[in-house]
Nucleic acid binder design. Sequence first.
DNA 1: AATGAATGAGGCTTCATTCAT
DNA 2: AATGAATGAAGCCTCATTCAT
Lengths: 191, 191, 191, 191
Amino acid sequence: MAEQGYHHAQISRIARTAGVADGTVYLYFKNKEDILISLLRQAIGRIVEKLQERMDGVECAEDRLRVLVRLYLEELGGHPQMAMVTQVHLRQVDANIRRQIGDIMKPFYRALDDVIALGMRQGVFRENVNPRIARRLIFGTLDETVTAWVLPGGKYDLVSLADDVVDVLLHGLSRAPAGIPSGEAMDDRPG
Amino acid sequence: MAEQGYHHAQISRIARTAGVADGTVYLYFKNKEDILISLLRQAIGRIVEKLQERMDGVECAEDRLRVLVRLYLEELGGHPQMAMVTQVHLRQVDANIRRQIGDIMKPFYRALDDVIALGMRQGVFRENVNPRIARRLIFGTLDETVTAWVLPGGKYDLVSLADDVVDVLLHGLSRAPAGIPSGEAMDDRPG
Amino acid sequence: MAEQGYHHAQISRIARTAGVADGTVYLYFKNKEDILISLLRQAIGRIVEKLQERMDGVECAEDRLRVLVRLYLEELGGHPQMAMVTQVHLRQVDANIRRQIGDIMKPFYRALDDVIALGMRQGVFRENVNPRIARRLIFGTLDETVTAWVLPGGKYDLVSLADDVVDVLLHGLSRAPAGIPSGEAMDDRPG
Amino acid sequence: MAEQGYHHAQISRIARTAGVADGTVYLYFKNKEDILISLLRQAIGRIVEKLQERMDGVECAEDRLRVLVRLYLEELGGHPQMAMVTQVHLRQVDANIRRQIGDIMKPFYRALDDVIALGMRQGVFRENVNPRIARRLIFGTLDETVTAWVLPGGKYDLVSLADDVVDVLLHGLSRAPAGIPSGEAMDDRPG
DNA sequence: AATGAATGAGGCTTCATTCAT
DNA sequence: AATGAATGAAGCCTCATTCAT
């Protein structure tokens, strides 16, 4: 079944991408896992760092979300190879790696949670939204957006989607505003 | 002759799960790829089929979305092993598989697109939402929800999240209603 | 410097020697180390076991030594490939393996020590011989004998050397009998 | 860029021991094999050279053996790293190296053979000892003695064993003198 | 003469797949 | 139809060797 004339070795690909020999990779990384983890750590580190800078004077949670979404798409959109790593190569089963990935993602997840919590404190975000699900809404949408962009080859400008993504995250699909929580809605009914 | 236990290969696990020997698997499937693809095809097939049944008398796009989200979480929440397949094992690089996955997912994506288009026609969904991004919003959130459930071991009831997920998909995070779309805003101007 | 047309892989050689494919080896052994260690364990186990049988009715330490030497040369002389393992492949640096080798050899060393101690108790062996050095005398001579036989290709009958080896171990090189311990020898000097 | 420490390769250790960089080694030696072989040649050369000096006025074969044993243990006991080379690193399979090692060892083996032959001519050594086996007795015992010393770390004074080693080589283990050789026994018969 | 980062051949090991039973 | 021992291609990694500085 070796339909291809050449092999799919990840290390060989990484090395070739970096323009070095296979062995050279091991001068800088302990093993394959270390490469992927290091790349993710670096990417997330950059994002979280820039996030703090850019959010500095931004008060409103909505604007902060806008900054966050734009930055995320900017960073991955600007580094397609990195996007391949985060969206494809790191989706493996090995429990040990998964734990490490979780640890590395934590600061970014916390940034999401902070924006969500801030928005609720500010009264800008609806308080009857489950914060965990809010996080998955944001991250899931970003993740799917990046995946749908990078897998076919990353052919358009990812950042150009930022505004539309933020819009739908903030306001959802529905034209009707969110109903006042169901219990209270009953009470509001006239006689 | 320090006889060793057998290995942790995916095929061995699949065979053991099915209660057959490794070789038996190849009486029913062409190769490992074929197994995973077949499982996905079957899962998506079931979902799409049930979707048509359940949506039969449901007119409103919002309700249809509710049905869709609930069904998706039901199906994957009820088959954790299948969820592992869709969320983990199928996330590989091989371009050939990716194309097949795309083909298999198409009916489900079309169902998403149909709901979105219907909602817009009905005036229930905002028409200035980018439909592609709307799809990624829904699918990304579902996907992330399932992943965040299955990876740590699938320990809670996934369907119980359905209502909260639908709520946030429909109404977003923001308390303020979506701004009136610029185009219409013009029309609304007096004089 | 790859002067040879083919590679020197140990595992490949072992597998080819056993008439199986490389991968087959790993159905029976955990790794390369496990193969070598298992082979040694098996060889030493056989020797120690047979030793106990053959020494059963043998009282005199000299005769026991004769049995031991003959058996050792018999076993390694009868399994040249095993001899290659013990005399060549196992002489590596890895501290971890070395420790395991030491543990495996212990029963055989103990057998040597037992014969030596018995001989001394019986008054058959000289009591002013350092037992540790006696062990090295016996084992070193056997080891060198086997190495000198196996390296050039194991072309003669190793066991045929047994009697001569035992003779020299028992009586040494010197024609003169062992002097009475040196201190006393002084006293013996005339005038 | 998780910069890693450098590897544990033999060449790196040799270079570090010599206080130079890895590449520098190749200004003085053709390859790793050449280093090991050169070290052995040098060590054996020194031993053979000193041997000739020290044996200059020594007539008796027994005393010559004493000198030889002491010198060998002195040289290796005084250079533990060299001992590691002779006892561990040089024990490899490559037939090409083995041949070279044989050539280098020849002068030392010849010295052994000379002492043995001298002793027999002098009537000091038993003439019914197989000279080849006598050589293996001496070299095997020395080799095992050095190995048993260097592998665990070379923690005691190797030369202090010299007298005991010589004693057992000359007089063997047995208290009883060697039986009068059958041939001569005939001659000894009265009338 | 010296360096040490880079190289890449080749070793060990895994695991999807085959095939004799 | 089912088995599972055996296979061997291909992946990861090591380390002796090279070469630009």
